[in-house]
Design a binder for these strands. Structure first.
Lengths: 334, 334
DNA sequence: CTGTTAGCGCATTCAA
DNA sequence: TTGAATGCGCTAACAG
C-alpha cells in the first residue's frame, strides 16, 4: 500500500479510502490510485485490515460438520456458502467425524483465526467450553444436533415427528413387526427418532419387540451386520425403519444381497442421491438441508450483526417421500 | 496478550514465547503465564501473528471446486482437509458452478485473505490473471482440469484412457452403435474424454455415428432430453457412454423411465454413491478423488514450503468397475 | 477533500 | 533467560 501511495502521489490514507470504496475522494485522484494499484498488482490485505477496523471482523465464518463428504452435510454447506457469498464472507469447512476432541480443537483453530461465527454440527455432548470461546466475540449456531450446557441458536429437523410419520406409514401399510435401526441414544437426535418410533407404535397399539430395536449402529457395516441378525431371527421383521443415512446404506446392502428389497418394507431417515433410481425406489423421511443451511446462516449473520435477542431454536419440517420400498406388504402377504 | 502479561508478571515477549511453544522459558514462569491465559480465557490471534511473522504465512489454504456438494468434489475436499489438518492448516472451500467470473472473484477473496495456497478446479479457460495473484506469494495447484496460459502444478485423471477403456469394454461386449454424451468440448477434460472415445472406436474399426455423439449436455436435465432423442431415432444406440456424473444421472433417469435399464448397455465416467445398489449395478470408470486430493495437497504444501522445481503434472489412474450395466447385450441380442 | 498521527495484536530484532 | 524497542499492513480519529 505504501508503494501504491508513492507511485500515485496520494497519501496512505487516501489509498485506503479508495481501496475501501469510501466517500469523498476526487475522481481524478481515485483514478490515479487505481492505476497505480493495477500497475503494481497490489492486493488488499484483509488480515491487516480487520486487525484495525470493522470491530475486528474478518468476514469469515467456520462450518464444522460431521463429515463434509456426507451428501446431507455437503448440501447444507452449499447453502451456507451461498448465503455467505452474498455478504462477501468466506467459509472455512471442517469434518469432525464424531470426535469430541477434534471438535474442540477445530473450534479453537477457528477462534484463533477470529472467524466472525461458527455453524456447528456437534460431535461432543458438552459445549460448556464454548463459553470461553465466545468471549472473543465469536457467535455460534448449532445445526442437526442441539447444544448441551450452552445457550445458542439451533436449527434442527423435526426428528420425533419424522420418525413417527415413517413408523405410522409402515403401520398403515399393515406392518406389525417393524424393526428400528439407529445411532446410539446418547446422541440426542437419535434418541428423538427412537422416541418418535416408540410413540407411533404405542399410538397404533403395538408393542415393539425389543429384539427388533437396535440402537448402536452408526455406520453401514454395523447396520448391515445388525440387519442380518434380525433377518435370521425365528420371527423376522416385515418392515424396517433406518434412522440415519449411513444406516440406510448398510441395510440396503443387506436387503439387496438377500434379495429381499422387493419384499421387506423399508423407510429411511434422510434422503440419498440415487434413492429414486433404486428398484424399488427408497421411501424416505427427507430433511431439507438447503433450508436448514440457509436458516442457520441467517441466524448466524443476524447475531454477527448484533442481534442480542433471546436464543432461537428453529425446527425444520421433514417430509415423507413415497417411492415404493415403504409400501411393500412384507413377506407374509398373500 | 497485554492482559496476560500484566496478570502473569511476565513481559509481552515472554508470553508470546509461551504461546508459540518457543525454547528457553523457565518452567515456573511459563506455568504462571499459562495460568493467566486460562484465567483470562485468552485466545491467540493468528491474524495478528501472521502479520508479523512466519513469512506472512496464514496457515490457511483455499479450495475452489465446481460444486462442493458434488460427491466427487466433496470426497476430494475431504482428502485435502485431512492432509491440511496434519499441518494445522485450515481450509476455505467455495463453489464456482462453472462461472469464470466467480472463479476470479473468489480467487481474489482468497488472495486478499492471504491464504498460503489455492487448489483450483477451474471454471475459466484462461488463467493468465493468476500471474498477478501469484505476486502476493500465493501458490496454485490445479485439479481435474489443467491451467491455461499459466504455469502451475496439476493433478488430472487419465481422461483419455478412461473413456477409451469404457468404449472398448462396450465394444468387447459386442456393441457397434455406441452413443457418447458429454460436456462441451471447450472444456479440456471433456475434449479428452471424447478423444478417448473416438480413438477406441477407430481402434475397433468402428465409425461413430455423428448423431450419437452429443457434446453439450453438462447437467442431468439436458442429458436426459438428449438421451430421449437418441432413443427415438430410427436406429437407436445399443449402448451409451456418459462422460460425467451429472450426465450419468440424467441418462439413468431416462433409461429407467423407459424401462431400458436392463436392455441398453451403459458405462458412466465417475462413480456414484449408490451405483452398486442399482438394478443392474452401474458399470463405471472411477477416478480416485481421495488420491487426487491427497496428491494435490502434497504438491501445494511442497510449493508453500519453498519447492521451486519445475512444474509437475500428475496423471491419476482411473479404473473400470464392472457392475452389470456395461455388460448388457443391447436390444438386438437374441 | 486530504494528510498526519497513533495503534490494532503480535513477533522480530537486539540488548541486558 | 528475559525484556524494550520497532514495525508488519492497515485504518480510526483527528487535524488541515
Amino acid at each position: 500500500m505504501l508503494d501504491v501511495s508513492a507511485l500515485s502521489g496520494a497519501s496512505l490514507k487516501t489509498v485506503s479510502r479508495v481501496v475501501n470504496g469510501a466517500q469523498g475522494v476526487t475522481p481524478g485522484l481515485a483514478e490515479k490510485v487505481r492505476t497505480a494499484i493495477a500497475q503494481l498488482g497490489y492486493r488488499h490485505n484483509q488480515g491487516a485490515s480487520s486487525l484495525r477496523s470493522r470491530g475486528q471482523r474478518t468476514s469469515s465464518i467456520g462450518v464444522l460438520l460431521h463429515d463434509v463428504a456426507n451428501p446431507f452435510s455437503s448440501a447444507m454447506y452449499r447453502a451456507i456458502e451461498f448465503a455467505a457469498r452474498d455478504r462477501g464472507v468466506v467459509t472455512l469447512a471442517g469434518s469432525l467425524d464424531g470426535d469430541p476432541e477434534r471438535e474442540r480443537h477445530l473450534v479453537m483453530e477457528l477462534v484463533e483465526r477470529r472467524v466472525d461465527g461458527v455453524i456447528l454440527m456437534p460431535s461432543s455432548g458438552d459445549h460448556s467450553y464454548l463459553l470461553d470461546e465466545r468471549r472473543t466475540g465469536t457467535q455460534f449456531v448449532f445445526v442437526d444436533r442441539p447444544p448441551a450446557f450452552f445457550d445458542a441458536d439451533s436449527v434442527l429437523a423435526d426428528n420425533r415427528v419424522g420418525a413417527a410419520r415413517a413408523t405410522q406409514h409402515l403401520v398403515d401399510v399393515g406392518h406389525r413387526r417393524i424393526a428400528y435401526l439407529g445411532d446410539s441414544v446418547d446422541i440426542v437426535t437419535a434418541r428423538e427418532r427412537l422416541d418418535g418410533f416408540t410413540a407411533a407404535m404405542s399410538e397404533a397399539k403395538l408393542v415393539p419387540d425389543p429384539q427388533l430395536v437396535v440402537t448402536d449402529v452408526g455406520d453401514p457395516d454395523r447396520a448391515s451386520v445388525a440387519m442380518e441378525r434380525l433377518l435370521d431371527l425365528a420371527d423376522p421383521p416385515s418392515a424396517v425403519l433406518t434412522a440415519q443415512n449411513l444406516v440406510t446404506f448398510g441395510v440396503l446392502h443387506t436387503l439387496r444381497d438377500r434379495r429381499l428389497r422387493h419384499i421387506i418394507a423399508h423407510v429411511g431417515f434422510d434422503d440419498l442421491p440415487l434413492a429414486d433410481l433404486l428398484e424399488p425406489g427408497l421411501t424416505v423421511i427427507a430433511q431439507d438441508p438447503t433450508r436448514i443451511g440457509r436458516t442457520a446462516a441467517d441466524l448466524l449473520f443476524a447475531r454477527i450483526d448484533g442481534d442480542a435477542s433471546p436464543t432461537r431454536h428453529v425446527v425444520s419440517d421433514v417430509r415423507l417421500i413415497v417411492r415404493g420400498s415403504g409400501e411393500l406388504p412384507g413377506p407374509f402377504a398373500s
